[in-house]
């Protein structure tokens, strides 16, 4: 295989093509609809919140991609955690994520969600969001501009269309013990209700 940036990009796209071909037509259609209609719960945890309004309004107009903001987690597909999280905020973020319907995805906006960013040695913000919730897409930067966020959405669209079994929500279900342990370590006794116990069963 050739070396260099463009062949590298090409190899990634080929990989996606091969994943797609394993899906049936209906699965592909479902994935297409999911990728082209993204309801976003924009959780303004930190300063990243300031970058989201321009993304949604006239100048950047992310509605072109089918991205719409919604108010409640029940309706949302994508949770944007925009920046640092204090434990107090994180509790609400976790609760909101758990109330979303599957399939659901998380975009971590800004460096703080990756490694704490400039809050690395803060006494009350978490460093790594992925310890507590499965992040599907990071958009790094401090702060990332709307263009970067749009790029993140486009990448996430590709990921959704690939319909991989490594999607965050599947991870969260299968490796819940891991996430729960981290959450309990952080919150101590004041933890949220357990996610597994949220539903009585698959019925009316």
């Amino acid at each position: 295989m050739d070396e260099g940036f463009i062949p590298y990009q090409q190899s990634l796209e080929d990989e996606e093509q091969s994943i797609k071909s394993t899906q049936s037509v209906i699965e592909q259609a479902i994935a297409w609809f999911r990728a082209h209609s993204m309801f976003v719960l924009a959780y303004g945890t930190g300063c990243g919140a300031i970058e989201m309004p321009p993304t949604f309004t006239s100048r950047y107009d992310i509605e072109r991609l089918g991205v719409v903001g919604v108010a409640t987690p029940r309706q949302a597909d994508i949770l944007i955690v925009s920046g640092y999280c204090s434990p107090k905020t994180l509790k609400r973020v976790i609760r909101s994520y758990e109330q979303m319907s599957e399939p659901k995805y998380i975009i971590g906006l800004g460096s703080c969600t990756i490694n704490g960013g400039m809050y690395w040695d803060s006494y009350n913000t978490i460093k790594k969001l992925d310890d507590f919730l499965p992040v599907d897409m990071y958009v790094n930067g401090c702060m990332p501009r709307p263009e970067a966020l749009i790029e993140g959405f486009v990448k996430l669209q590709e990921k959704i269309r690939a319909n991989s079994s490594e999607a965050g929500y599947i991870q969260y279900r299968t490796r819940y013990a891991h996430y729960r342990a981290n959450q309990e370590r952080l919150f101590g006794t004041q933890v949220q209700p357990r996610y597994e116990e949220n539903f009585a069963g698959m019925n009316l």
């Binding site: 609809f33 082209h36 209609s37 006239s58 107009d61 509605e63 072109r64 089918g66 319907s101 599957e102």
Partner: peptide
């Protein structure tokens, strides 16, 4: 703005029907 495609609302409803 430019806004979404004409079929966007339709896509939204289909997507919601096929949520897991």
């Amino acid at each position: 703005r430019f806004g979404p495609s004409l079929a966007q609302s339709f896509s939204d409803s289909i997507k919601l029907f096929v949520k897991e």
